[in-house]
Design a protein around this nucleic acid. Sequence first.
DNA 1: CGGCTCTTTGATATATTTCAATATGCGTGG
DNA 2: CCACGCATATTGAAATATATCAAAGAGCCG
Lengths: 218, 218
Amino acid sequence: MLALSDTCRAAIMGHGGLCACLSPSALGHLRAIAGDVRIEAGQTLFQTGHAADALFGVRHGAVMLSRSLDGHRRQILSFHFSGDMLGFAAEGRHHCTATALGRASLCRIPLAELDQDLALQRHVHGILARNVGQALDMQVRLGRMNAAERVRSLLNELCSRLGGGRELHLPMRIAEMADYLGLRPETVSREMSALRQAGLVGSFSPDGVLAITDPTGL
Amino acid sequence: MLALSDTCRAAIMGHGGLCACLSPSALGHLRAIAGDVRIEAGQTLFQTGHAADALFGVRHGAVMLSRSLDGHRRQILSFHFSGDMLGFAAEGRHHCTATALGRASLCRIPLAELDQDLALQRHVHGILARNVGQALDMQVRLGRMNAAERVRSLLNELCSRLGGGRELHLPMRIAEMADYLGLRPETVSREMSALRQAGLVGSFSPDGVLAITDPTGL
DNA sequence: CGGCTCTTTGATATATTTCAATATGCGTGG
DNA sequence: CCACGCATATTGAAATATATCAAAGAGCCG
């Protein structure tokens, strides 16, 4: 059991974060109960069917949730970055798999502890409600947008969530973007090329850095 | 303020319902605070941007949640039938529009009342978590299934949620199925025809009754 | 009966996938 | 340090699924 690191504390103070409206005493309590987890790129935090006994807060790195259809069609459900919560589950079982996109560290809050803390519970309810909202955004994207619109809206989302001004550091590869957007990697690549030719973004270096030439144009 | 009707009480005892794990006293309290709303086909219960000050439980009829992209592309996010809850919102504002598919009656639980009732709050949390799960199911459908699979999975879902054995009474038209599945009405119609020719379903009478010839085959 | 809306079906257009080839960068081991 | 092999991205051409356009058919209401 470690106390929340400064990185984590700072990160989760944000809007979608964990501690935004917690009283100082509740936050102190949280620091006492939050565990520490570190995983390497590609490793899973939990898998479909596993018992859900804790919530996680991303301290550093990026994590994705995904589900697989017949084993070779993968749908990525969400990306979680520094300050984001994950691990919500119905019926005490996870219905998706959490995989680290790179080396990641998280804090872990046992659900048992959550039951004790009323303020925390209420806050988690708010995060959950926001999660539903994001899932509905995804439904619109996947159901009604074409490939170009999907890629643009993803880049927009990543810009606002990851910040970094004109240097967008993408923690995922084209393949993951494709599985998130309901497209094939080739299609995502083509749309990125189109945005590049339109002068909205620069080159996509293989270390994941994408130059945003025209932030407003996106 | 009306007490919950028997229909409603019976309906919401189910798994996704409202009162499944409520203590008798809490249920009594709920009966006292639940209001009554009736809307006609096509009318809205709330719209995107409106203040969210209550939860609703469908007593009778069917309600859909939808969002519109640029005004003429509509994505239907969910269907809600007898016993289902709706009205969850983040930040106190609705981010979608609730429309009655036919004449519908609902009970209305002001959020202010919810704050008073701890057991109710916890139960609502469970419903919300299940909602997230359904939204993720939709992501898989929209992102990774082809038209035939989407239509089949919708029919499966409706069979299990609406019951009725071999006579599935569909509360929505082809157009709504299409906007739910991210397809065009013509495509849905074609897939239904294919299922009919495959002997899995019967004819789709315009009053919305679809004969399920082979329930297991779906 | 006539007009309306909705569904069904057909023909064509188009977006995206699929398949295939090439390129690019990266790490490894010589 | 360079060459090789690997993984990933990019690009092209063909195939395919779905959308679009158009017309016909069916039921419902006035």
